[in-house]
């Protein structure tokens, strides 16, 4: 049974989403939006993981397990990232990454 949509199309969507996220990290000022863009990049990686594990070469259904670990790392990352942003915001009321220059409290 072959699928109507080729594997390459899924990988291309994943790559495009990744680079949209990368562009967001590079150009936005707001630290919370940068965190959102990092989440988009992680999700693009998830899409590639699932696509390869379901379709590529010697298909191995276990490839999806890495997605679970990415979920864990993403949850930890967003929790600690938001905590750092909130601590910096409490120190000085800004979330602009080019204005947060001092890490001293």
């Amino acid at each position: 049974m072959t699928s109507a949509v080729p594997l390459g199309a899924f990988i291309a969507v994943s790559a495009l989403l990744f680079f949209i996220g990368l562009g967001g990290v590079l150009v936005r000022r707001n630290a919370v939006v940068i965190l959102m863009c990092v989440e988009l990049m992680l999700n693009a990686a998830n899409l590639a993981f699932v696509a390869f594990s379901r379709r590529f070469g010697l298909v191995d259904e276990r490839g999806s397990v890495f997605v679970v670990f990415v979920f864990v790392v993403a949850a930890a990352e967003v929790a600690v990232g938001l905590a750092i942003i909130l601590a910096a915001y409490r120190n000085r009321p800004t979330v602009d990454v080019d204005e947060i220059q001092r890490m001293k409290g």
């Binding site: 594997l7 790559a15 680079f19 379709r55 590529f56 298909v59």
Partner: peptide
Amino acid sequence: LAALVALPVVIVAFTFVDAGVALE
């Protein structure tokens, strides 16, 4: 920079082809 890196990666992405057998 993001667009320049994205272009070759997306071109390479289309070169991946499915395995002969697909999972149900």
